[in-house]
Structures are given as C-alpha cells and as structure tokens.
Design a binder for these strands. Sequence first.
DNA 1: GCGTCAAGTTGACGGTGTCAAGTCGGCTCT
DNA 2: AGAGCCGACTTGACACCGTCAACTTGACGC
Lengths: 231, 231
Amino acid sequence: MRSTRSRARPGEGEKLREEILLAAEALLVETGSDGALTLRAVAARAGVTTPSVYLHFANRDDLLEAVCLRSWGELERRMREHAEGVDDPLRVLGRCGRGYATFALEHPVQYRVLLMRPSAHRSPGARACFRYVTEAAAACVSAGIMRGRPESLAVGLWSALHGLVSLLIAQPEFDWPDDLDTLIDNVVRMAGFGTVLASRIPREATPASAQLAEGLDALTASWPERDQPRR
Amino acid sequence: MRSTRSRARPGEGEKLREEILLAAEALLVETGSDGALTLRAVAARAGVTTPSVYLHFANRDDLLEAVCLRSWGELERRMREHAEGVDDPLRVLGRCGRGYATFALEHPVQYRVLLMRPSAHRSPGARACFRYVTEAAAACVSAGIMRGRPESLAVGLWSALHGLVSLLIAQPEFDWPDDLDTLIDNVVRMAGFGTVLASRIPREATPASAQLAEGLDALTASWPERDQPRR
DNA sequence: GCGTCAAGTTGACGGTGTCAAGTCGGCTCT
DNA sequence: AGAGCCGACTTGACACCGTCAACTTGACGC
C-alpha cells in the first residue's frame, strides 16, 4: 500500500495523531453514526494503513472517545456564551439550558458517544461543564430562589435537558412539534421553575392539585402586569 | 453440527422463534450488554446453527428489537400499577414517574435498546405508554392544575425521567447520591411541579428570581399546616 | 557513507453478520 | 407400504471487522 501521505520525520509522529483525529471526526459527522467509524475507513481517509492507528490510540474505543472528548470544551463555551451578560441567576440557568440543547442537536453523534460512555464523568471537560451548571444553581440558592444542595439541583436540571435532547436525537421520526425552539423552551422553563418550586415545597407537604392550583392562580395572576421583559 | 434440539415438525416452525427470543433475552440479561448478543451465541444457546436465526428474524437488529419490544407492555403495566387507586391527577403523574424510573433501572439493557432505536415511536407498546402519560397529563389539565396541550406536557415529563434514568444507567460510576430513591423523587417532583408552574406562567411574563421567590414564599408558607399527608 | 531507530507496512488470525445451496425427515397420497 | 414433497434446518463460504507480531523504510546524527 503505497500511501499518498509522506512519512513524518522522526519526532513528528504526533502529526499523524492529529490527522487521524481529523479524519475520524469528518467520518463521524458525514455518516452521522459512530458505527461507521471503522479503523480501516479512518486509516484510509488519513492516507495510512490500518494498524498505524495503533501507534497513537490503544484501540477503536480509545479513538472514538478521543474524537468526542473535544466537544466538552465547546459545550462549556457555548453555555457560557449564552449566559453572558445575564444577571438574574434563574435566567442564567435558562440560557445555559438552551445553549446545551442547541449544542447537542448540532453535534448529535458526539453528544451520544460522550454521554453514553461510562467514563464520561472522569473527563475533565465533563467535570467542568457540570461544575459550571452547579455554580449557576448555587447562585440561585444564594439568591434565595432555590433551596438544597446545588449538586442535586444541577443533576435535576441536567437530567431534564439530557432527556429531551436524547429523545430528539434518538427518535427523529417521532411526531415532534414543528417548533423545536418552543419545545426546548418549554422543557427549560419546566426544569427551571420546577427546581425552584420543588426545592421550596417541603417534602412532607405535598399539596393536592386543587390546593396547588388555587395558590398558583393567586400567585401568577399579578405577574403579567408586574413583569413584562418582552423577551 | 449435530444439535441437541430435535427438529420441529412441519407447521411448528414458530417454536424456534420463541426459543431464540428466550435465549437472546437470557443472554442480554446475563451479560448486561447488547454487544454480547451475537447471532452465534444466541443460536448456540438455542441449540441450533447460526443461519437458522434468519428463518425468523431478518437480521441481528431485528432480533434485538424483537427481544426488547416485549418490555413496553411491562412498562405500561408497571406505571398503571403504581398509579392504581390514586385520585389526585398530579399524584398519578408522580407515581407513574416513579414506576417508570424503577422499571428502567431494573431493565437497563432493554431500556437503552428500546429508547435508542429510531423506530421506537412506531411500536404499539411505546405508543400505548405515551398515550397513558398523555392521558394522565390531560387529567391534570381538566382538573385545572396544568394548562396547554397534554402531548406537550407529557413530552416534558417524559424527557425529565428519561434523562435521569439514562444518566443513571450510562454513568454508573458518577458520584450519585447514596439514596437513589430520593434522587428519583426529586426529579419527579421537579418535573411535576415544573410542568404545573411553567404551564401557568404566561410565556410573556418571565418573573425575575427575586419576584418569583417572594411570591413562592407567600404561597408555600401556609402549606405544611394545611396538608400533611404523611407520605 | 552508515548504522540507528522512530514511523509506518505486511500479512495474518479469530470473530462477526449474512447468504446461497444443500440435506434431512416427517407428512401425505397413492 | 413406498414415493415424493416440502418445510425445517445445516453446510460452507464470503466480506468485513478489530487486533497483533514481524518486517521494511527512510531521515537523521556521527
């Protein structure tokens, strides 16, 4: 197999690693499936023979993980961007949620791989993302809007968003509403408001529906007049 | 390959289908991974040669799906059981959520396969489950506790639960709290209360955190006295 | 110019899903 | 009772996969 690529010079072996990662990512995005990421296809695309991949990656799994791990950093950046300049801590969470969802839908393959590996929690990028959300939840607690351990609150928020985008990615043919942005918005609102409310209703007091509705009627009746941020 | 199994009599070919399904399910449960479900392993376990599987299943995917599809019915039964005898429509949803979560955690492999196939929404069992949740949401709307399309509300609730159990299944090594039941409970409460609250706060009125906190303080202060169902 | 050693290749192995063709054996019909 | 049919299953093969041990190549330092 006379390859197109010219052999790297001693000391520059790392170049191939980068080329393989690029080839693998392109393959992943083009096919939209991690099953198509065969070592042979990746190697061919990088202009190299199959076993050469083993010079830089322990096995196929290692390669797949390396490709996707890069996305964590971008996810965190996306969330920070979305929340930039927002003061209200609850709104910060809302913006993070929307950023999270749009990022996941733009990189469905990477997202799936990332969150399905049992090792995800060990990745520094993942920890950073989770810490960011936890801090945003902590800000809500500090502001008196939520109660409880920020980590627990963050897990709940993360769950809701992860569930939504997982379903959107895995079940594209489901009868989703036309307006995905509104759907995402609804779930973000549900998760945010739900965390606020659930963390404030004592566990022992589970108000019955009628009572809850009655109280919320009184509570929400006055809001449209008092707060119209015209979002 | 002289097999242990004796050849079925004409007209009884369907027997093998059942034996293959049983063997496949056992293999799935024992190994805890759908990757271990190779045609050769399944066939050997059923006491038959590999290509015989093709007499009853189009391919490996088809077999895997057939094995897991059976779980939908059990999931629906589980939710109905949990909600049995409960009147308050919001509590019905809460019970459903807990049933859903425990079922998923008890059948992690099947759950993963079921919800990750793009064809899930076409399965009658899946549609029945979704309809059941939608009806429970519709009951909340009828009772005046929630507002909006029941389907949209159901999607939100489903998302939250699916996200939680997906993370629990896929990231077993994450630093989860010791008490999983409480975690599930928190997410169920978040989803339930969140759907109620978000569906009642008009989209144009997004109360700032301080205002929301103030209103909820007033609202929830009186609850512990008025409702103590000692759950 | 030449040996060295990293960088990359060759060729092979066992395992996988899948298929075309063959074989077996109980049932029916004469 | 024997012939023959046809459904149930097996045989044998193919292409592809991840992976590894052994081999070759070629740029650099001396």
